[in-house]
Design a protein around this nucleic acid. Structure first.
Length: 432
RNA sequence: UCCGCGGUAGCUCAAUGGUAGAGCAUUCGGCUGUUAACCGAAGGGUUGUAAGUUCGAAUCUUACCCGCGGAGCCA
Protein backbone atom coordinates (compact mmCIF):
# COMPACT_ATOMS: atom_id res chain seq x y z
CA UNK A 1 0.00 0.00 0.00
CA UNK A 2 2.65 2.54 0.98
CA UNK A 3 4.59 4.25 -1.81
CA UNK A 4 7.68 2.36 -2.92
CA UNK A 5 9.52 5.44 -4.03
CA UNK A 6 9.24 9.18 -3.62
CA UNK A 7 9.97 12.01 -6.02
CA UNK A 8 13.11 13.06 -4.16
CA UNK A 9 14.72 9.71 -5.04
CA UNK A 10 14.02 9.71 -8.77
CA UNK A 11 17.67 10.10 -9.78
CA UNK A 12 18.16 6.41 -8.92
CA UNK A 13 15.34 5.36 -11.26
CA UNK A 14 16.12 7.04 -14.57
CA UNK A 15 15.00 4.87 -17.47
CA UNK A 16 13.02 2.57 -15.20
CA UNK A 17 9.31 2.17 -14.74
CA UNK A 18 8.09 3.39 -11.36
CA UNK A 19 4.78 3.94 -9.60
CA UNK A 20 4.29 7.11 -7.58
CA UNK A 21 1.47 8.28 -5.36
CA UNK A 22 0.45 11.80 -4.55
CA UNK A 23 -1.80 14.71 -5.42
CA UNK A 24 -2.37 16.81 -8.50
CA UNK A 25 -0.59 20.12 -8.00
CA UNK A 26 -1.56 21.56 -11.35
CA UNK A 27 -2.53 20.43 -14.84
CA UNK A 28 -1.97 21.68 -18.36
CA UNK A 29 -3.90 20.00 -21.13
CA UNK A 30 -4.30 19.95 -24.87
CA UNK A 31 -6.28 17.52 -26.98
CA UNK A 32 -3.76 14.72 -27.22
CA UNK A 33 -1.39 15.32 -24.34
CA UNK A 34 -1.99 16.08 -20.69
CA UNK A 35 0.64 17.35 -18.28
CA UNK A 36 -0.13 16.38 -14.70
CA UNK A 37 2.06 17.90 -12.00
CA UNK A 38 2.28 15.39 -9.17
CA UNK A 39 3.34 16.36 -5.69
CA UNK A 40 4.07 13.79 -3.01
CA UNK A 41 5.44 15.87 -0.14
CA UNK A 42 9.03 15.29 -1.20
CA UNK A 43 8.93 17.09 -4.53
CA UNK A 44 7.11 17.85 -7.77
CA UNK A 45 7.08 15.85 -10.97
CA UNK A 46 5.56 16.51 -14.37
CA UNK A 47 3.81 13.40 -15.64
CA UNK A 48 3.13 13.35 -19.40
CA UNK A 49 0.06 11.44 -20.50
CA UNK A 50 0.16 10.97 -24.28
CA UNK A 51 -2.93 9.83 -26.10
CA UNK A 52 -1.39 6.70 -27.63
CA UNK A 53 0.55 5.59 -24.58
CA UNK A 54 -2.37 4.75 -22.32
CA UNK A 55 -5.81 3.22 -22.70
CA UNK A 56 -8.71 5.47 -23.63
CA UNK A 57 -10.13 5.14 -20.11
CA UNK A 58 -6.85 6.26 -18.56
CA UNK A 59 -6.55 9.17 -20.98
CA UNK A 60 -10.08 10.31 -20.11
CA UNK A 61 -9.20 10.05 -16.43
CA UNK A 62 -6.07 12.17 -16.97
CA UNK A 63 -8.26 14.73 -18.66
CA UNK A 64 -10.68 14.84 -15.76
CA UNK A 65 -8.44 14.96 -12.70
CA UNK A 66 -8.81 18.30 -10.96
CA UNK A 67 -6.49 20.17 -8.64
CA UNK A 68 -5.52 18.18 -5.50
CA UNK A 69 -6.99 14.91 -6.76
CA UNK A 70 -5.08 12.03 -5.18
CA UNK A 71 -3.81 9.58 -7.78
CA UNK A 72 -1.27 6.93 -8.56
CA UNK A 73 0.79 7.13 -11.72
CA UNK A 74 3.02 4.55 -13.40
CA UNK A 75 5.56 5.34 -16.09
CA UNK A 76 9.15 5.66 -17.21
CA UNK A 77 11.40 8.25 -15.58
CA UNK A 78 13.33 10.46 -17.99
CA UNK A 79 15.84 13.17 -17.33
CA UNK A 80 14.52 16.46 -18.63
CA UNK A 81 16.37 19.69 -18.07
CA UNK A 82 13.24 21.71 -18.85
CA UNK A 83 11.73 20.57 -15.54
CA UNK A 84 12.40 22.06 -12.14
CA UNK A 85 13.38 18.80 -10.50
CA UNK A 86 15.25 17.67 -13.63
CA UNK A 87 12.96 14.70 -14.29
CA UNK A 88 9.76 13.84 -16.10
CA UNK A 89 7.56 10.77 -16.16
CA UNK A 90 6.12 9.23 -19.33
CA UNK A 91 2.89 7.78 -18.03
CA UNK A 92 1.67 4.32 -18.93
CA UNK A 93 -1.09 4.18 -16.32
CA UNK A 94 -3.01 6.49 -13.98
CA UNK A 95 -5.26 5.35 -11.14
CA UNK A 96 -7.63 7.53 -9.19
CA UNK A 97 -7.28 7.38 -5.41
CA UNK A 98 -9.33 10.30 -4.12
CA UNK A 99 -11.35 12.90 -5.98
CA UNK A 100 -11.08 16.61 -5.33
CA UNK A 101 -13.97 18.80 -6.33
CA UNK A 102 -13.77 22.61 -6.40
CA UNK A 103 -10.49 22.91 -4.53
CA UNK A 104 -10.60 26.46 -3.16
CA UNK A 105 -6.96 27.49 -3.44
CA UNK A 106 -6.08 28.10 -7.07
CA UNK A 107 -2.60 28.78 -8.46
CA UNK A 108 -3.49 32.48 -8.63
CA UNK A 109 -3.30 35.12 -5.91
CA UNK A 110 -5.33 34.96 -2.75
CA UNK A 111 -5.82 37.28 0.20
CA UNK A 112 -4.39 36.42 3.58
CA UNK A 113 -7.76 36.06 5.32
CA UNK A 114 -8.91 33.49 2.80
CA UNK A 115 -5.63 31.62 3.01
CA UNK A 116 -5.69 31.40 6.79
CA UNK A 117 -9.32 30.34 6.75
CA UNK A 118 -8.09 27.51 4.55
CA UNK A 119 -4.84 26.94 6.43
CA UNK A 120 -5.45 23.16 6.45
CA UNK A 121 -5.29 23.26 2.63
CA UNK A 122 -2.89 26.19 2.25
CA UNK A 123 -0.25 23.96 3.87
CA UNK A 124 -0.20 21.92 0.64
CA UNK A 125 1.12 24.79 -1.45
CA UNK A 126 4.72 24.87 -2.54
CA UNK A 127 5.73 27.81 -0.42
CA UNK A 128 4.15 26.44 2.75
CA UNK A 129 5.73 23.03 2.24
CA UNK A 130 9.12 24.74 1.88
CA UNK A 131 8.61 26.73 5.07
CA UNK A 132 7.54 23.65 7.05
CA UNK A 133 10.62 21.77 5.87
CA UNK A 134 12.86 24.61 6.97
CA UNK A 135 11.06 24.83 10.31
CA UNK A 136 11.73 21.16 10.79
CA UNK A 137 15.40 21.59 9.87
CA UNK A 138 15.79 24.44 12.34
CA UNK A 139 14.13 22.47 15.14
CA UNK A 140 16.30 19.48 14.40
CA UNK A 141 19.49 21.52 14.24
CA UNK A 142 18.67 23.07 17.60
CA UNK A 143 18.26 19.64 19.15
CA UNK A 144 21.43 18.38 17.49
CA UNK A 145 23.34 21.42 18.70
CA UNK A 146 22.42 20.99 22.35
CA UNK A 147 22.46 17.19 22.35
CA UNK A 148 26.03 17.18 21.07
CA UNK A 149 27.14 19.59 23.80
CA UNK A 150 26.10 17.57 26.86
CA UNK A 151 22.75 19.31 27.34
CA UNK A 152 19.81 17.27 28.60
CA UNK A 153 16.35 17.90 27.18
CA UNK A 154 14.25 18.97 30.15
CA UNK A 155 10.49 19.31 29.73
CA UNK A 156 8.88 21.89 31.99
CA UNK A 157 5.17 21.87 32.82
CA UNK A 158 2.76 23.61 30.50
CA UNK A 159 0.26 24.29 33.28
CA UNK A 160 1.75 26.44 36.00
CA UNK A 161 0.48 28.18 39.09
CA UNK A 162 2.90 31.10 38.81
CA UNK A 163 3.97 33.70 36.34
CA UNK A 164 7.55 34.41 35.49
CA UNK A 165 6.84 38.01 34.60
CA UNK A 166 3.44 38.91 36.02
CA UNK A 167 -0.01 37.52 35.26
CA UNK A 168 -1.37 40.13 32.87
CA UNK A 169 -0.37 38.25 29.75
CA UNK A 170 -1.29 34.73 30.81
CA UNK A 171 -4.04 32.44 29.65
CA UNK A 172 -5.98 31.61 32.77
CA UNK A 173 -7.95 28.51 33.75
CA UNK A 174 -9.64 26.99 36.76
CA UNK A 175 -7.61 24.12 38.12
CA UNK A 176 -10.01 21.86 40.05
CA UNK A 177 -10.13 23.00 43.66
CA UNK A 178 -6.73 24.65 43.60
CA UNK A 179 -7.79 27.97 42.15
CA UNK A 180 -6.31 29.61 39.10
CA UNK A 181 -3.67 28.05 36.91
CA UNK A 182 -2.07 29.39 33.78
CA UNK A 183 -0.56 28.22 30.52
CA UNK A 184 3.17 28.68 30.71
CA UNK A 185 4.77 31.67 29.08
CA UNK A 186 8.27 30.36 29.69
CA UNK A 187 9.86 27.20 31.02
CA UNK A 188 12.81 29.14 32.33
CA UNK A 189 12.21 28.98 36.07
CA UNK A 190 11.81 25.22 35.86
CA UNK A 191 14.83 24.97 33.59
CA UNK A 192 16.84 26.65 36.34
CA UNK A 193 15.88 23.82 38.68
CA UNK A 194 16.94 21.42 35.92
CA UNK A 195 20.31 23.13 35.50
CA UNK A 196 21.00 22.69 39.22
CA UNK A 197 20.28 18.97 38.78
CA UNK A 198 21.87 18.26 35.40
CA UNK A 199 24.32 21.11 34.78
CA UNK A 200 23.14 22.02 31.30
CA UNK A 201 19.56 21.60 30.13
CA UNK A 202 17.28 22.92 27.45
CA UNK A 203 13.55 23.08 27.10
CA UNK A 204 11.81 23.00 23.74
CA UNK A 205 8.09 23.35 23.51
CA UNK A 206 5.07 25.56 23.12
CA UNK A 207 4.60 28.66 25.25
CA UNK A 208 1.63 30.98 25.53
CA UNK A 209 1.25 34.73 25.81
CA UNK A 210 -2.08 36.46 26.08
CA UNK A 211 -0.55 39.72 24.91
CA UNK A 212 -2.87 41.82 22.83
CA UNK A 213 -0.18 42.14 20.23
CA UNK A 214 -1.31 42.36 16.67
CA UNK A 215 1.81 42.50 14.60
CA UNK A 216 3.69 40.32 12.16
CA UNK A 217 6.00 39.29 14.99
CA UNK A 218 3.52 37.88 17.51
CA UNK A 219 1.60 34.68 18.09
CA UNK A 220 -0.31 33.77 21.23
CA UNK A 221 1.06 30.24 21.03
CA UNK A 222 4.64 29.84 19.90
CA UNK A 223 7.57 27.50 20.34
CA UNK A 224 10.58 28.42 22.36
CA UNK A 225 13.95 26.85 23.08
CA UNK A 226 15.38 27.73 26.44
CA UNK A 227 18.83 26.51 27.42
CA UNK A 228 19.87 27.01 31.03
CA UNK A 229 23.44 26.44 32.21
CA UNK A 230 24.97 26.25 35.66
CA UNK A 231 28.24 28.16 36.10
CA UNK A 232 27.70 30.25 32.94
CA UNK A 233 27.97 34.03 33.19
CA UNK A 234 26.50 36.49 30.69
CA UNK A 235 29.52 36.31 28.39
CA UNK A 236 29.33 32.51 28.32
CA UNK A 237 25.62 32.84 27.62
CA UNK A 238 26.25 35.14 24.65
CA UNK A 239 28.98 32.85 23.33
CA UNK A 240 26.53 29.95 23.34
CA UNK A 241 23.75 31.93 21.66
CA UNK A 242 26.14 33.03 18.95
CA UNK A 243 27.45 29.52 18.34
CA UNK A 244 23.92 28.13 18.20
CA UNK A 245 22.66 30.68 15.68
CA UNK A 246 25.63 30.07 13.42
CA UNK A 247 25.01 26.33 13.65
CA UNK A 248 21.32 26.68 12.77
CA UNK A 249 21.94 28.88 9.74
CA UNK A 250 24.67 26.60 8.43
CA UNK A 251 22.41 23.57 8.79
CA UNK A 252 19.66 25.20 6.75
CA UNK A 253 22.13 26.36 4.11
CA UNK A 254 23.50 22.85 3.85
CA UNK A 255 20.23 20.93 3.70
CA UNK A 256 17.53 23.29 2.45
CA UNK A 257 18.91 25.00 -0.65
CA UNK A 258 15.89 23.91 -2.71
CA UNK A 259 13.43 25.28 -0.17
CA UNK A 260 15.29 28.58 0.16
CA UNK A 261 15.12 28.88 -3.61
CA UNK A 262 11.34 28.34 -3.65
CA UNK A 263 11.10 31.14 -1.08
CA UNK A 264 13.42 33.28 -3.23
CA UNK A 265 15.61 33.84 -0.20
CA UNK A 266 18.79 35.87 -0.78
CA UNK A 267 21.24 33.21 0.36
CA UNK A 268 24.21 35.58 0.37
CA UNK A 269 22.67 37.27 3.40
CA UNK A 270 22.61 33.96 5.30
CA UNK A 271 26.12 33.05 4.24
CA UNK A 272 27.40 36.05 6.18
CA UNK A 273 26.10 34.67 9.47
CA UNK A 274 29.41 33.66 11.02
CA UNK A 275 30.91 34.29 14.43
CA UNK A 276 31.78 36.62 15.99
CA UNK A 277 28.59 38.67 16.11
CA UNK A 278 28.76 42.33 17.09
CA UNK A 279 28.11 43.03 20.79
CA UNK A 280 26.83 46.37 21.89
CA UNK A 281 25.88 47.57 25.33
CA UNK A 282 22.48 49.21 25.73
CA UNK A 283 24.21 52.46 26.67
CA UNK A 284 26.32 52.38 23.51
CA UNK A 285 23.20 51.60 21.49
CA UNK A 286 21.48 54.67 22.94
CA UNK A 287 24.53 56.79 22.11
CA UNK A 288 24.53 55.44 18.59
CA UNK A 289 20.85 56.27 18.12
CA UNK A 290 21.37 59.75 19.53
CA UNK A 291 24.29 60.41 17.19
CA UNK A 292 22.00 59.55 14.32
CA UNK A 293 19.57 62.14 15.56
CA UNK A 294 16.92 59.79 16.92
CA UNK A 295 14.85 60.79 19.88
CA UNK A 296 15.76 58.21 22.51
CA UNK A 297 16.30 58.47 26.21
CA UNK A 298 18.50 56.33 28.46
CA UNK A 299 16.35 54.13 30.65
CA UNK A 300 13.60 53.32 28.19
CA UNK A 301 13.39 50.04 26.39
CA UNK A 302 14.26 50.05 22.72
CA UNK A 303 11.28 50.26 20.37
CA UNK A 304 10.85 48.24 17.21
CA UNK A 305 12.06 51.16 15.10
CA UNK A 306 15.17 51.58 17.26
CA UNK A 307 15.96 47.90 16.93
CA UNK A 308 15.66 48.10 13.16
CA UNK A 309 18.06 51.03 13.03
CA UNK A 310 20.61 49.18 15.15
CA UNK A 311 20.38 45.91 13.28
CA UNK A 312 20.54 47.63 9.90
CA UNK A 313 24.12 48.68 10.75
CA UNK A 314 25.28 45.09 10.61
CA UNK A 315 24.83 42.08 8.37
CA UNK A 316 24.94 39.70 11.33
CA UNK A 317 22.77 39.30 14.39
CA UNK A 318 23.54 42.00 16.97
CA UNK A 319 23.76 41.27 20.68
CA UNK A 320 22.58 44.20 22.76
CA UNK A 321 23.44 43.64 26.43
CA UNK A 322 23.09 45.30 29.84
CA UNK A 323 19.73 47.04 29.62
CA UNK A 324 18.45 49.21 32.47
CA UNK A 325 17.30 46.78 35.15
CA UNK A 326 14.17 48.71 35.96
CA UNK A 327 12.24 47.59 32.91
CA UNK A 328 13.52 44.02 33.07
CA UNK A 329 12.35 40.82 34.75
CA UNK A 330 12.86 40.23 38.46
CA UNK A 331 15.10 37.19 38.05
CA UNK A 332 17.87 38.95 36.16
CA UNK A 333 21.12 39.53 37.99
CA UNK A 334 22.35 43.11 38.31
CA UNK A 335 25.67 44.12 36.86
CA UNK A 336 28.09 44.30 39.82
CA UNK A 337 29.85 47.19 38.06
CA UNK A 338 26.63 49.18 37.74
CA UNK A 339 23.60 48.16 39.79
CA UNK A 340 21.28 50.03 37.44
CA UNK A 341 22.00 47.51 34.71
CA UNK A 342 20.73 43.97 34.28
CA UNK A 343 23.07 41.26 33.03
CA UNK A 344 20.85 40.52 30.08
CA UNK A 345 21.06 40.30 26.32
CA UNK A 346 18.72 40.64 23.39
CA UNK A 347 19.81 39.25 20.06
CA UNK A 348 18.44 41.19 17.11
CA UNK A 349 18.26 39.36 13.80
CA UNK A 350 19.55 41.20 10.73
CA UNK A 351 17.46 42.67 7.91
CA UNK A 352 15.03 44.25 10.34
CA UNK A 353 13.68 40.98 11.73
CA UNK A 354 14.08 42.18 15.30
CA UNK A 355 14.47 40.32 18.54
CA UNK A 356 14.83 36.55 18.29
CA UNK A 357 16.60 35.86 21.59
CA UNK A 358 16.24 37.25 25.08
CA UNK A 359 18.58 35.98 27.77
CA UNK A 360 20.26 36.81 31.03
CA UNK A 361 22.43 35.77 33.89
CA UNK A 362 20.07 34.94 36.75
CA UNK A 363 20.11 36.38 40.22
CA UNK A 364 21.75 33.75 42.39
CA UNK A 365 21.66 35.53 45.75
CA UNK A 366 18.74 34.49 47.96
CA UNK A 367 18.13 37.83 49.63
CA UNK A 368 18.47 39.92 46.50
CA UNK A 369 16.06 37.64 44.66
CA UNK A 370 13.56 37.78 47.51
CA UNK A 371 13.82 41.57 47.46
CA UNK A 372 13.12 41.66 43.72
CA UNK A 373 10.10 39.42 44.08
CA UNK A 374 8.71 41.82 46.66
CA UNK A 375 9.56 44.90 44.59
CA UNK A 376 7.67 43.44 41.67
CA UNK A 377 4.78 42.63 44.03
CA UNK A 378 4.84 38.98 43.06
CA UNK A 379 3.34 36.37 45.39
CA UNK A 380 6.27 35.06 47.41
CA UNK A 381 4.49 31.79 48.23
CA UNK A 382 4.49 30.74 44.61
CA UNK A 383 8.22 31.36 44.36
CA UNK A 384 9.21 29.45 47.45
CA UNK A 385 10.55 26.53 45.44
CA UNK A 386 12.38 28.91 43.12
CA UNK A 387 14.02 30.64 46.08
CA UNK A 388 15.10 27.22 47.35
CA UNK A 389 17.40 26.99 44.33
CA UNK A 390 19.34 29.90 45.92
CA UNK A 391 19.25 28.31 49.32
CA UNK A 392 20.80 24.96 48.51
CA UNK A 393 24.04 25.25 46.58
CA UNK A 394 23.30 28.35 44.57
CA UNK A 395 25.69 28.98 41.68
CA UNK A 396 26.00 31.61 38.96
CA UNK A 397 23.89 30.51 36.02
CA UNK A 398 22.52 31.85 32.78
CA UNK A 399 20.23 31.00 29.94
CA UNK A 400 18.23 32.40 27.06
CA UNK A 401 15.08 31.87 25.08
CA UNK A 402 14.99 31.59 21.32
CA UNK A 403 11.67 32.13 19.56
CA UNK A 404 11.40 29.37 16.98
CA UNK A 405 8.89 31.09 14.69
CA UNK A 406 10.82 34.35 14.63
CA UNK A 407 13.95 32.44 13.75
CA UNK A 408 12.15 30.60 10.95
CA UNK A 409 10.71 33.89 9.69
CA UNK A 410 14.15 35.45 9.52
CA UNK A 411 15.91 32.48 7.91
CA UNK A 412 13.12 32.03 5.36
CA UNK A 413 13.12 35.75 4.66
CA UNK A 414 9.34 36.02 4.86
CA UNK A 415 7.41 38.92 6.30
CA UNK A 416 4.92 37.39 8.74
CA UNK A 417 5.48 34.66 11.28
CA UNK A 418 1.95 33.25 10.87
CA UNK A 419 3.30 31.18 7.97
CA UNK A 420 6.00 29.54 10.07
CA UNK A 421 3.77 27.39 12.30
CA UNK A 422 1.26 24.89 10.92
CA UNK A 423 -1.78 26.38 12.63
CA UNK A 424 -1.08 29.90 13.93
CA UNK A 425 -2.86 31.17 17.02
CA UNK A 426 -3.27 34.92 17.03
CA UNK A 427 -5.25 37.43 18.98
CA UNK A 428 -8.23 37.36 16.62
CA UNK A 429 -7.85 33.86 15.26
CA UNK A 430 -7.89 30.39 16.78
CA UNK A 431 -9.22 28.40 13.81
CA UNK A 432 -8.77 26.14 11.91
C1' U B 1 -6.31 49.43 24.27
C1' C B 2 -4.93 53.20 20.53
C1' C B 3 -3.95 54.90 15.25
C1' G B 4 -4.59 53.86 9.99
C1' C B 5 -6.77 50.92 5.87
C1' G B 6 -10.45 47.70 4.07
C1' G B 7 -15.23 44.34 3.34
C1' U B 8 -18.47 43.90 -4.40
C1' A B 9 -19.14 36.55 -8.09
C1' G B 10 -15.85 30.54 -5.11
C1' C B 11 -10.90 33.67 -5.36
C1' U B 12 -8.15 38.43 -6.71
C1' C B 13 -9.90 43.03 -7.90
C1' A B 14 -12.66 47.17 -11.13
C1' A B 15 -16.95 50.32 -11.30
C1' U B 16 -18.16 60.21 -11.76
C1' G B 17 -24.61 59.26 -6.88
C1' G B 18 -27.56 56.85 -12.80
C1' U B 19 -28.24 49.15 -16.52
C1' A B 20 -22.67 45.75 -11.12
C1' G B 21 -17.71 44.29 -14.72
C1' A B 22 -12.79 41.72 -15.72
C1' G B 23 -9.11 37.86 -14.81
C1' C B 24 -8.66 33.17 -12.40
C1' A B 25 -11.64 28.91 -10.74
C1' U B 26 -16.07 25.86 -12.57
C1' U B 27 -18.83 23.71 -17.08
C1' C B 28 -18.64 23.10 -22.49
C1' G B 29 -15.71 23.52 -27.09
C1' G B 30 -10.59 24.09 -29.75
C1' C B 31 -5.26 22.88 -29.76
C1' U B 32 0.78 17.19 -30.01
C1' G B 33 5.28 19.86 -25.47
C1' U B 34 2.69 22.93 -21.76
C1' U B 35 5.71 25.57 -17.40
C1' A B 36 0.53 30.30 -12.77
C1' A B 37 -0.15 27.06 -20.72
C1' C B 38 -3.13 29.33 -24.51
C1' C B 39 -7.88 30.50 -27.63
C1' G B 40 -13.51 30.69 -27.69
C1' A B 41 -18.29 30.33 -25.08
C1' A B 42 -21.57 29.70 -20.79
C1' G B 43 -23.31 29.76 -15.79
C1' G B 44 -22.24 32.51 -11.41
C1' G B 45 -24.36 38.86 -7.27
C1' U B 46 -29.43 40.43 -0.93
C1' U B 47 -22.13 44.99 -3.00
C1' G B 48 -20.45 42.81 5.61
C1' U B 49 -25.22 44.13 8.79
C1' A B 50 -28.88 47.82 10.17
C1' A B 51 -30.81 52.51 9.66
C1' G B 52 -30.64 57.34 7.21
C1' U B 53 -29.98 61.25 3.05
C1' U B 54 -31.68 61.10 -2.22
C1' C B 55 -36.10 60.73 -7.81
C1' G B 56 -32.05 57.15 -7.58
C1' A B 57 -26.75 54.44 -3.08
C1' A B 58 -21.51 49.53 -4.12
C1' U B 59 -20.52 54.91 -3.98
C1' C B 60 -22.68 59.93 0.83
C1' U B 61 -23.93 59.86 6.64
C1' U B 62 -24.34 57.15 11.44
C1' A B 63 -23.95 52.78 14.36
C1' C B 64 -22.43 47.90 14.66
C1' C B 65 -19.81 43.34 12.93
C1' C B 66 -15.55 41.18 10.66
C1' G B 67 -10.64 41.43 8.67
C1' C B 68 -5.72 43.61 7.55
C1' G B 69 -1.39 46.80 8.82
C1' G B 70 1.08 49.29 12.74
C1' A B 71 2.08 51.12 18.02
C1' G B 72 2.78 49.59 22.98
C1' C B 73 4.51 44.72 25.11
C1' C B 74 7.38 40.75 24.01
C1' A B 75 10.32 35.60 21.74
Amino acid sequence: MKPEIYIKDLSKHVGKEVTLKGWLYNKRASKKVKFLILRDGTGYLQCVVFVGNVTDEVFALADNVSQETAFEVTGIIKEDTRQVGGFELDATDVKLIGESEDYPITPKDHGIEFLIDNRHLWLRSKRQVAIMKIRHRIAKSIRDFFDSRDFTLFDPPIITPNASEGTSTLFEMEYFDLGKAYLTQSGQLYAEAGAMALGKVYTFGPTFRAEKSKTRRHLTEFWMVEPEMAFYNLDDDMDLAEEMLEYIVKSVLKDNKAELEILERDISKLEKIERPFPRLSYSDAIEMLKEEGHDVEWGKDLGAADETIISSKYDKPVMVHRYPAESKAFYMKRDPENEKLALCVDVLAPEGYGEIIGGSQREDDYNKLLGRINEHKLPVDFFKWYLDLRKYGSVPHSGFGLGLERTVTWICGIDHLRETIPFPRMIYRNTP
